[in-house]
Amino acid sequence: MPPRPWPVTVAAPAAIELEGLTRRYGERVALAGVTLALPAGATLVVFGPNGAGKSTLLRILATLLRQHAGTARVLGHALPDEGWAVRGQVGLLGHEPLVYRDLTARENLRFHARLHGVDLERVEELLDRVGLARRADDKVHTYSRGMVQRLAVARAVLHDPAVLLLDEPRASLDPAGAELVEPLIGAAGGRTRVITSHDPAGGLAEADIALGLRAGRPALLAPAGEVDSAEIGALYR
């Protein structure tokens, strides 16, 4: 299916603008020619099979990876040259929780709070909100996967970022856990969000814009309201 022409009129200033974004690993193309604009406060959901370039896109937006061609602007700053201005305003929740297993939840969050120059009281508040207050002084390697993921959520939103980059955020959460973190990473938070998902129905429900990737190339780009689940499912075939 050819990508549809860009149909959304951007009223709010774009939080994320991508133009021909391309990244290779050696000779393998991980991301090619991704162009889109995401208004502030909107949610972009990225669909695509494993290896389609979803995580690569998130890592570029998080300033962890440089693109090879094309431009990326996050909150008005061009990447990678102005990455220093973007860092600290994006929160990344990837497959790796980015916490040390031999430290406790509180120690991990305090470490990141110090790096980000965040008040330590925020750590206590977040521990409470993700339901880890009682286990906060246990080492992370004693946690279940769901608990680690909730801790990772707390870590990602610790510095109150304007942009959230979420890589399958609910994959390892049970319904209760998902409900617990919803106020932090859900649409109600008002943050600009880029989410990757394998779940057509659930993903579309929270998306303003849907992007489908296949082998790094945009195969689908449309307002979520104009896409049905079958089109998403087609990406995986």
Binding site: T63, G91, E96, P97, L98, V99, D102, L115
Partner: peptide, 17 residues
């Protein structure tokens, strides 16, 4: 090793320092 295996390096790189 701990930073590499537990992703602490990315966590550090995300911080504005």
């Amino acid at each position: 090793v701990a930073d590499r295996e537990e992703g602490g390096l990315d966590g550090f790189l995300l911080a504005p320092v």
